[in-house]
Design a protein around this nucleic acid. Structure first.
Length: 566
RNA sequence: CGGGGCGUAGCGCAGCCUGGUUAGCGCGCCUGCCUUGGGAGCAGGAGGUCGCAGGUUCGAAUCCUGCCGCCCCGACCA
């Protein structure tokens, strides 16, 4: 590609709208142009990067035996009513009526459409297994689009759906996708982790998220330093420590704690450590108040609580709501005699002689014991894992890293096939629901994540597999025939050797060409300038670390070949 | 939706508080000269319904009201 033939409107200054680095760089490198909130035009250079990701995804999906198809973006509401999601999905689903007043929506995902295909076309166990995928634009009317392509309303997604005869077969399909995903992100040249997204009570893990590691990630993931265990912090289980030696229960006493409402001030006042105190947090779960007991030095993981309760929304109650629900001012709540639903983090049940609020202003209770002084029936893992906790898998040490979710696979089971009546006939002629799985990759987000992970002060540093062009040739002097001829020759030879080469043939000063080459992130840059006239050598520079080497013009192609596979 | 902020040339901003003739600056763009290994220099030039609609006023980018759009912080997700 010639720079003179491609529209890459680069910017010197950072547009005010961009906060995160990938967004800033994509705007500056002429990747994307915003049309409206969360909706972008992919400009030629940006589209080229997206195509790189798509091609890797497509090759690996095909290799895993999946078939590509393309489903409509506009979908009838009836289908969504059948699955029950038309009501459930919420305002992210963009609904509208067509000229016939037919209720319609823009597809945020395609379970309904694919299940409709499946029920019409997959009738026999002999038709299975099947895995169908597409790479397509999705629309989700996000509450708050942000960070450019990282969380747009319109975005490109690869979504695949598998259909199997039973659970066992579905797990085979799942496994294939798990392997394909690992290959895809490896081939993209990204540092990533696959994390458990849901460790169901069944024992097996049937949902995994693929996270690209980057400081600006929206999720925190816990990673074991000693084994391969990794989990989204929201779901990372805390392994209960072995119970220590049994301690004798002391008689409960009530103590005055005037004005001491916070864990730290109570502990200081009573000369105890935060891990001897149990705090009582009040949340509103779908507007119903619940109390959760948690060790004083720990933090509640709200997602765990939300999942346990199976509600759609939870939030901490404010002081007034706490008082209204319990009759106790916040800061003095405790389990003894509490009048709302009570849950406890598993760790609390191992503690003896607790200090808790007395459910009375300015008072706490000490030496409180579960079973003797209060009852709690609902016990689970509610607290957030910390780096002080052992790895739940091997007992090793944990570290926390930030990640960007680029892929998510999960086993759906039969919920869609049952609600939408997608049955096949087994060997004995019995109708059975198709067992489904679904597998997503945020293609446009992968590009954002790649930039988020690979950049420096000068611009993007593309991993070679994702770079729209692996190597750029800078012709520093268009008016010098010797220089221009050499640059053209190198460019042509690189293309002939199978590389996607780029040449900066604009009538610009050298400085601009260097700056743009850095900004656009070509993995290799070949500079043809006056040095070439002196000694017939050109400079080859590696974007990643800035190292340079002078290479003779005849050796350039083989030099590049030795550095990157094409 | 709740909380905060912003809309002035393609981009980044000043001017607004304290209304007053042709609305500024930097970058980019066009023409010419000059220059050519890290976003040069000089000279000339094009480009703006000051987000929109009302209102106050002799006079509004500036003050008031309403609307629209965008960005940031929270819940959601690939």
């Amino acid at each position: 590609m010639r720079y003179s033939q491609i529209l890459i409107p680069t910017l010197k200054e950072v547009p005010a709208e961009a906060e995160v680095i990938s967004h800033q760089l994509m705007l500056r490198a002429g990747f994307i142009k915003k049309l409206t909130s969360g909706v972008y035009t992919y400009m030629p250079y940006g589209l080229a990067a997206i195509r790189r990701v798509e091609n890797i995804v497509r090759e690996e999906m095909n290799r895993a035996g999946a078939q590509e198809l393309s489903m409509p973006m506009v979908q009838p509401a009836d289908l969504w009513q059948e699955s029950g999601r038309y009501e459930k999905y919420g305002p992210e689903l963009l609904r509208f009526r067509d000229r016939h007043e037919r209720q319609s929506c823009l597809g945020p995902t395609h379970e309904e459409v694919i299940t409709d295909i499946a029920r019409k076309e997959l009738h026999s166990y002999r038709d299975l297994p099947v895995n169908l995928y597409q790479i397509q634009t999705k629309f989700r009317d996000e509450i708050r689009p942000r960070f450019g392509l990282m969380r747009g309303r319109e975005f490109i997604m690869k979504d695949a759906y598998s259909f199997d005869v039973d659970d066992e077969a579905a797990e085979v399909s799942y496994r294939k996708m798990f392997d394909a995903y690992n290959r895809i992100f490896q081939r993209c040249g990204l540092e990533f982790r696959c994390v458990q997204a849901d460790s169901g009570a069944i024992g097996g893990s049937f949902s995994h998220e693929f996270m690209v590691l980057a400081d600006t990630g929206e999720d925190t993931i816990a990673v074991c330093n000693d084994c391969s265990w990794a989990a989204n912090l929201e779901k990372a289980e805390v392994k209960l420590a072995e119970p220590g030696d049994s301690v004798e229960q002391q008689p409960m006493v009530k103590v005055e704690t005037p004005g001491k409402r916070k864990v730290n001030s109570v502990c200081e006042f009573l000369a105890i450590k935060p891990d001897q105190l149990v705090k009582t947090l009040v949340y509103l779960a779908d507007d119903e108040p619940v109390a959760v007991l948690l060790r004083g030095d720990c933090e509640l993981e709200e997602v765990k609580l939300k999942n346990y309760l199976g509600v759609t929304e939870i939030r901490p109650a404010d002081d007034k709501e706490i008082y209204d629900a319990t009759g106790v001012p916040s800061g003095y709540l405790g389990p003894v005699g509490i009048r709302i639903r009570l849950l406890a983090d598993q760790e609390v049940t191992q503690m003896v002689n607790l200090t808790v609020g007395a459910n009375e202003k300015n008072h706490h209770l000490q030496n409180v014991n579960q079973g003797r002084d209060f009852e709690v029936r609902e016990i689970a893992d509610f607290r957030r894992l910390t780096t002080a906790d052992p790895c739940p898998s091997c007992g090793g040490t944990i570290r926390l890293v930030e990640g960007i979710e680029v892929g998510h696979i999960f086993k759906l089971g039969t919920s869609y096939s049952e609600s939408m009546k997608a049955f096949y006939q087994d060997r004995d002629g019995n109708g059975r629901p198709l067992v489904m799985g679904c597998y997503g990759i945020g293609v446009s987000r992968v590009v954002a994540a790649a930039i988020e992970q690979n950049h420096d002060a000068h611009g993007i540093i593309f991993p070679a597999p994702l770079a729209p062009y692996q190597v750029t040739v800078l012709n520093l002097d268009l008016n010098d025939n010797e220089v221009s001829a050499a640059a053209e020759k190198i460019y042509i030879q690189l293309n002939e050797a199978g590389f996607d080469a780029f040449i900066d043939d604009r009538d610009e000063r050298p400085g601009s060409k260097f700056k743009d080459a850095d900004l656009l992130g070509f993995p290799y840059r070949i500079t043809v300038g006056k040095r070439f006239k002196e000694n017939s050598m050109v400079e080859v520079r590696r974007r990643e670390d800035g190292t340079t080497e002078d290479v003779g013009i005849e050796d350039v192609v083989s030099y590049i070949s030795s550095k990157i596979a094409n």
